[in-house]
Simulated scan of single mutants.
Amino acid sequence: MSVRSAHGRPVAVPEEGEVVVGKQGGVQESAEVLRVAFEAAAARKVPLRAVRAVRAVRAWSLPPVYGYSPGSMWIADQFGGPEPYEKAAPEQALEPWRVKYPQVEVVAHMEQGSAGHVLLAAASDAQLLVVGRRVRESAMGAHIGSVAHAVLHHSACPVAVVSRP
């Protein structure tokens, strides 16, 4: 198979290795990206690595049930704070796809760092890297985002960029 980079140069596609997907957002936000990644892994008969980058300094988004009263924050602290919620979100998004593609071995991978760096490192020996991009228009035209831009220009393997609303 002939694959070319963003610069038009040929890219070597390894015959072994996994499919890596950049996991971001909840169940609905990541559905299309995960569909493409699971289909690719199933077709290639290789494992899928679902990668989520976590920044060292993180502003937590609490579930709506907690609100922001001192009493509800105390309850959140009793259950380990927002961290368990943050760790459970990727698993919730992967679950329907694990059921639909039981033949695909899935490795969930969370790592601290910028999304671009974490994805590039995880995909260093991959057959394919799948990332999403929000469709955003600006005065200068469509914007692909920093993560998609980084992996398109620096990935050692082919990259699939999946648009999402």
Score class of each variant (00 low, 15 high):
residue 125 D to E: 14
residue 94 L to Q: 08
residue 78 Q to E: 15
residue 13 V to A: 08
residue 84 P to A: 06
residue 145 G to E: 06
residue 35 R to E: 14
residue 39 E to M: 04
residue 63 P to L: 04
residue 28 Q to R: 09
residue 38 F to L: 04
residue 64 P to L: 07
residue 103 Q to H: 07
residue 124 S to M: 07
residue 66 Y to M: 13
residue 121 A to W: 03
residue 41 A to H: 10
residue 66 Y to C: 11
residue 44 R to N: 11
residue 32 E to M: 03
residue 106 V to G: 04
residue 124 S to K: 14
residue 27 V to C: 07
residue 115 A to I: 09
residue 72 S to C: 05
residue 88 A to H: 10
residue 115 A to G: 05
residue 13 V to W: 03
residue 145 G to F: 10
residue 51 V to F: 01
residue 153 H to V: 13
residue 27 V to Q: 14
residue 124 S to W: 00
residue 29 E to F: 00
residue 114 S to L: 04
residue 37 A to K: 02
residue 135 V to N: 12
residue 114 S to D: 10
residue 128 L to I: 05
residue 128 L to V: 07
residue 26 G to R: 02
residue 34 L to T: 08
residue 127 Q to T: 04
residue 8 G to M: 11
residue 120 L to C: 11
residue 83 E to P: 00
residue 18 E to R: 15
residue 123 A to K: 00
residue 119 L to G: 05
residue 120 L to V: 14
residue 151 V to L: 07
residue 98 R to H: 06
residue 115 A to E: 13
residue 95 E to H: 12
residue 18 E to V: 04
residue 68 Y to A: 14
residue 149 H to C: 01
residue 32 E to G: 12
residue 13 V to K: 01
residue 54 V to W: 03
residue 97 W to R: 02
residue 47 P to V: 01
residue 86 E to S: 05
residue 146 S to K: 06
residue 131 V to K: 08
residue 42 A to V: 02
residue 107 V to M: 04
residue 150 A to L: 02
residue 48 L to Q: 09
residue 88 A to G: 11
residue 142 A to C: 00
residue 150 A to R: 09
residue 69 S to A: 07
residue 106 V to D: 05
residue 47 P to D: 09
residue 6 A to V: 14
residue 33 V to M: 04
residue 25 G to C: 09
residue 35 R to V: 01
residue 106 V to P: 03
residue 130 V to Q: 08
residue 50 A to F: 08
residue 36 V to F: 12
residue 26 G to W: 02
residue 87 K to N: 07
residue 76 A to E: 11
residue 90 P to K: 06
residue 121 A to P: 00
residue 152 L to F: 06
residue 159 V to M: 06
residue 133 R to N: 02
residue 90 P to E: 08
residue 72 S to L: 08
residue 146 S to P: 03
residue 65 V to T: 11
residue 35 R to A: 11
residue 142 A to D: 06
residue 147 V to I: 12
residue 2 S to Q: 10
residue 137 E to M: 12
residue 11 V to H: 04
residue 24 Q to T: 05
residue 39 E to A: 06
residue 26 G to C: 12
residue 90 P to R: 09
residue 14 P to N: 12
residue 83 E to G: 02
residue 160 A to T: 15
residue 62 L to Y: 15
residue 123 A to S: 15
residue 142 A to E: 09
residue 136 R to W: 02
residue 36 V to Y: 12
residue 11 V to I: 15
residue 12 A to M: 11
residue 117 H to I: 04
residue 84 P to S: 10
residue 102 P to H: 05
residue 23 K to S: 05
residue 108 A to T: 09
residue 115 A to Y: 01
residue 82 P to A: 13
residue 81 G to Q: 11
residue 64 P to Q: 07
residue 152 L to M: 11
residue 118 V to Q: 09
residue 92 Q to A: 15
residue 119 L to A: 04
residue 80 G to K: 08
residue 9 R to A: 15
residue 123 A to E: 01
residue 35 R to N: 05
residue 2 S to I: 04
residue 8 G to N: 12
residue 141 G to E: 09
residue 150 A to V: 01
residue 54 V to Q: 09
residue 113 G to L: 10
residue 107 V to H: 04
residue 7 H to G: 11
residue 143 H to L: 15
residue 140 M to L: 14
residue 121 A to R: 15
residue 57 V to Q: 13
residue 69 S to Y: 01
residue 155 S to V: 07
residue 59 A to Y: 11
residue 12 A to I: 13
residue 102 P to Y: 01
residue 42 A to T: 06
residue 147 V to K: 03
residue 159 V to G: 07
residue 73 M to Q: 11
residue 150 A to C: 05
residue 141 G to C: 08
residue 37 A to W: 01
residue 29 E to G: 14
